[in-house]
Amino acid sequence: MDLPEAKKVFKQIGSSDDDQEKKLVAIQTLLDRGGFSNVTKHDCIEALRWLLEEYL
């Protein structure tokens, strides 16, 4: 997944209809490439909330 697509999925992680695998790949892509410019704290919190709801 390229970085712009990963950011798009990440920023809409709680409300998008993307499958779980695509969301996980987006998170992993941002972590691996350090692509957190233009990603807000709120976006990160929503991603963490999604992870916790899905896997705990």
Score class of each variant (00 low, 15 high):
Leu31Glu: 09
Arg49Trp: 06
Glu5Ser: 14
Ala6Arg: 01
Leu24Thr: 09
Lys8His: 13
Asp19Val: 11
His42Asn: 06
Ser37Arg: 10
Leu48Lys: 07
Gly34Trp: 06
Glu54Ser: 15
Pro4Phe: 11
Gln12Gly: 04
Val39Ile: 15
Asn38Thr: 14
Cys44Met: 12
Asp32Phe: 08
Leu52Lys: 15
Tyr55Ile: 12
Lys8Met: 06
Phe10Pro: 01
Leu48Asn: 06
Thr29Leu: 00
Phe10Glu: 02
Ser37Asn: 14
Thr29Cys: 07
Ile13Gln: 05
Asp19Leu: 05
Val39Trp: 01
Asp43Phe: 04
Asn38Gln: 14
Gln28Ala: 15
Arg33Pro: 00
Lys23Val: 04
Glu5Ala: 12
Val25Pro: 00
Asn38Ala: 14
Lys41Val: 07
Met1Cys: 09
Val39Met: 07
Leu31Gly: 02
Ser37Ala: 11
Met1Trp: 08
Phe10Met: 03
Asp17Ala: 07
His42Trp: 02
Ile13Asn: 05
Thr29Tyr: 01
Gly14Val: 07
Lys23Phe: 07
Asn38Gly: 05
Ala26Met: 05
Val25Met: 12
Lys7Trp: 02
Glu53Pro: 01
Thr29Pro: 00
Lys41Gln: 07
Asp19Glu: 13
Met1Asn: 06
Leu31Ile: 09
Pro4Lys: 13
Cys44Lys: 14
Arg33His: 10
Ser16Tyr: 08
